[in-house]
Design a protein around this nucleic acid. Structure first.
Lengths: 250, 250
DNA sequence: ATCATTGAATTCTCTAGAGATGTAGCGCAC
DNA sequence: GTGCGCTACATCTCTAGAGAATTCAATGAT
């Protein structure tokens, strides 16, 4: 007789993780609550430290828990920002001196830092999209409630924007899209490519991401009505901080 | 004199991971190549097995490498499927007997399994969106090249679709959207909410995900021209297998 | 009252070793 | 040849222990 429809019962660390997970999902442990730590698990289950760490690591990797060194492991909280795709780029938004980000945060305070504006030689991929080998690059980091949530890098064909406010740190009211309009290059069509992956160490550090947090990568290309690409914007978002919304008709 | 402008140099496992990562990103190690394994790292760096595992774990968690038990750790390959948002739902797609998925895979063969069609009592969240407490639910799993890439669960208000082919396993040509049209309920407007997170154990098992792979979760609601919600579809995608594309005008 | 210091608690890093489990290739029997 | 079993090798799981790094609250000095 084969006795095992389930051949191998899960290892210890996984069973402990399963138990903690169900306590989180059932609501017994709530946002911000402290989980039993390494020492507690070692005592409760009579296991080695490495095994206890492995159990907690499962939940941390799933994004359900966040470790705080010297303090403990805590249930993670999830309060996403809603980012609108199509609607946020409607002319009403950027045509009236309102910045795009306003639509994202719905009035929540935000800050920009790490602003860098440089002229560079484009990589092959970017040159291929923008049809230009020299580009102006704007790099910045956005934070909400003093927490960094997004890295953004915009590329503009150098010959199109040379001498405009786009090459300056401050772009003035309405942001770069208003300036492109001033140049007679108003964006008319957008393509966004969305991917998700785990962050590299640099992204992880700049966004202050705990373990188990993926990033969403959006590559947005803006075209004029004539089909001329005028901007390529790569955004790296803390996936735990965002919900993307896209509306469209059939 | 303070001798350390860098107060703490990174731990051993991290330095090893950094070295391997740069070898991957530089192209020295390519898609599918085998990385040095636990035993090799132990010998090369004179470290314990746990430390070697930790180093490899970093790359695995970043999604750059995939462990194959009993064989080794390999550089991961990334061949995404392009999924179109707005364009894929254009009337031309679902009005002519072509299934939506055709547009996604661009002709690549795909299979559907784990089909389940049941009538259920809706959860509060779903009932709130669909304005109905009884729903028909269609659960399925899609695979491309014999690899599962997406879990999908669709909810329909029971009173609207009762007796139609939507309650049967086979929906006929054009899929459920063509059937909704037959019922006089053609979808006219869509809202998609996109999130990314790490998978739970169930999702991980059903999709066969290796460590370090996030999932993209899309919640799509379809409305008729009159604003009546007719479908809520929750899709869970292997993030390593997909690129989402959204096109829209300013 | 405010600030600096101390100490307990906690996570993080690493060593050393051992058995279990799965993979892949090789040779042998059929 | 084909298939089966054996074997070397690799990852996976776990034990036991120890020191480093960080946090946080309590204590003490100013």
């Amino acid at each position: 007789m084969s006795e095992s429809p389930v051949p191998h019962e899960p290892p210890i660390y996984r069973r402990i993780a399963d138990g903690l997970r169900s306590r989180i999902l059932s609501g017994e442990l709530r946002d911000g609550d402290r989980l039993p730590g390494e020492n507690t698990l070692m005592a409760d289950y009579a296991i080695a430290r490495a095994t206890a760490r492995q159990a907690l690591g499962v939940l941390i990797n799933e994004g359900l828990a966040v470790p705080k060194r010297g303090s403990g492991v805590y249930v993670r909280l999830f309060k996403p920002i809603r980012r609108h795709g199509s609607r946020r780029l409607a002319r009403a938004q950027w045509g009236q001196g309102r910045s795009i980000w306003d639509a994202d945060t719905r009035g929540r305070p935000f800050t920009v830092d790490e602003v860098e504006v440089v002229r560079e030689r484009a990589s092959d991929e970017i040159a291929g999209v923008l049809e230009s080998h020299e580009v102006w690059v704007r790099r910045r980091r956005y934070s909400v409630d003093a927490r960094p949530v997004q890295l953004a890098t915009s590329y503009f064909p150098a010959n199109l924007v040379e001498g405009s406010a786009i090459t300056a740190a401050e772009t003035g009211p309405g942001g770069v899209y208003a300036r492109l309009s001033d140049l007679g290059l108003p964006p008319a069509h957008f393509t966004e490519e969305v991917r998700a992956r785990m962050p590299g160490p640099r992204e992880s550090a700049l966004l202050g991401l705990p373990g188990g947090t993926p990033v969403i990568v959006i590559d947005r290309t803006a075209y004029t009505a004539g089909g001329l690409p005028v901007e390529l914007n790569e955004m790296v978002l803390d996936a735990a901080a965002y919900v993307l919304q896209y509306d469209f008709d059939a």
